Simulated scan of single mutants.
Amino acid sequence: MTVWRKSSYSGEDKCVEVALGPAAKIRDTKDRSGGTLEISTRSWDAFLIGLCRPTPQDLREL
């Protein structure tokens, strides 16, 4: 059984969901039956790290 998760900050149908396992599966909540993007969990981790890393532009504001 696949367990889909989404951010607690998102609305009911305006976000993406992710299911983690041997691979990360990603889908749009507005069209759950429309297809799933599947990437390696290593790629998913790299994506999240990239989102959380400050950019040089962010650092100038400090």
Rank of each mutant, 00 (worst) to 15 (best):
T2M: 15
T2L: 15
T2H: 11
V3G: 10
W4F: 00
R5G: 05
R5C: 13
R5S: 14
K6N: 08
K6E: 11
S7I: 02
S7H: 03
Y9G: 06
Y9I: 11
S10H: 08
S10C: 05
S10F: 05
S10I: 03
G11H: 10
G11E: 02
G11V: 08
G11C: 11
G11D: 08
E12C: 06
E12N: 14
E12T: 09
E12F: 07
D13M: 10
K14W: 08
C15A: 09
C15S: 02
C15F: 00
V16Q: 04
E17S: 01
E17D: 06
V18N: 02
A19F: 01
L20Q: 06
L20W: 03
L20T: 00
L20F: 09
P22C: 06
A23T: 15
A23N: 15
A24R: 02
A24Y: 07
K25E: 08
K25S: 11
I26S: 00
I26N: 02
I26K: 01
I26F: 05
R27D: 02
D28G: 07
T29A: 04
T29R: 01
K30N: 08
K30T: 13
D31L: 09
D31K: 09
R32W: 04
R32L: 11
S33D: 15
S33G: 14
G34C: 09
G35C: 13
G35V: 14
G35K: 10
G35E: 13
T36H: 04
L37D: 11
L37S: 08
L37N: 06
L37W: 05
L37V: 15
L37M: 12
L37F: 08
E38M: 13
E38N: 10
E38V: 15
E38C: 12
I39M: 06
I39N: 01
S40N: 10
S40C: 09
S40R: 12
T41W: 03
R42V: 13
R42M: 07
R42D: 15
R42E: 07
R42H: 10
S43L: 15
S43A: 15
S43W: 04
W44S: 07
D45Q: 09
D45G: 01
D45T: 07
D45I: 04
A46R: 14
A46I: 02
I49Y: 05
G50Y: 02
G50F: 03
G50Q: 05
G50A: 09
G50I: 02
L51H: 10
L51D: 07
C52Y: 05
C52A: 08
R53M: 13
R53E: 15
P54Q: 09
P54C: 03
P54N: 04
T55W: 03
P56A: 08
Q57P: 03
Q57T: 14
D58L: 00
D58G: 00
D58S: 07
D58I: 01
L59F: 03
L59C: 07
E61V: 12
E61L: 09
E61Y: 05
L62D: 14
L62R: 14
